[in-house]
Amino acid sequence: MLNGLYVMDPNRFDDVYGPEARAAIERHLVIDSPLLTRDQITPDVLAGLDVLVTGWGAPKLDAEFLAAAPKLSLVLYGAGSIKPMVTPEMWARGVRVTSAATANAEPVAEFALSQILYALKHGWRYVLAARAAAASAPRGPELGAYGATVGLVSLGATGRATARLLSHHKLDVQAYDPYADPAQAERLGVRLVGLEELFATSDVVSLHSPLTPETERLVGTELLESMKHDATLINSARGGLVDEAALVDVLSRRTDLFAVLDVTDPEPPVDGSPLFTMPNIVVTPHLAGSLGHERRRHGETMADELARYVAEEPLLYEITESGLARRA
Rank of each mutant, 00 (worst) to 15 (best):
E196A: 15
Y146T: 14
L117E: 04
V7L: 05
L29Y: 09
G140E: 12
P269Q: 03
Y118A: 15
S114G: 14
A47P: 09
S33A: 06
Q115H: 15
P279C: 08
P268F: 10
T284A: 03
E214V: 11
G299F: 04
F199V: 11
A23D: 03
R93V: 01
A307R: 00
F65H: 06
A325Q: 07
H293C: 01
P138S: 04
T201A: 15
G78H: 05
P274N: 10
F258N: 00
P266Y: 14
V242M: 02
R296H: 14
P138I: 03
G240Q: 02
L287I: 05
R326V: 01
D62H: 06
G220P: 01
K83N: 08
Q40L: 11
E300S: 12
I319P: 02
L2M: 14
R93A: 02
P268V: 01
L128V: 14
G140T: 09
Y317H: 15
E142R: 13
L5P: 04
T54F: 13
R326E: 15
A24I: 09
H169C: 12
P178L: 11
R327Q: 11
V283D: 00
G239N: 06
H286N: 07
E305N: 09
L195Q: 15
L218F: 04
L261F: 13
Y6A: 07
P138E: 01
R27A: 13
L143N: 07
T42F: 08
A328V: 01
R125P: 00
S136L: 10
A67Y: 05
R96H: 11
T320V: 13
W56C: 06
A132Q: 15
T98S: 15
D265I: 00
I82Q: 10
R238F: 10
L117A: 06
A79Y: 07
S209F: 07
L306A: 10
T42K: 14
E300Q: 11
A21L: 14
W56S: 09
E20M: 07
V95N: 09
L251A: 00
V193C: 11
V108I: 09
M8D: 02
A161F: 10
V95H: 06
A328S: 13
A100Y: 01
L76Q: 12
R297G: 01
F111R: 05
E197S: 02
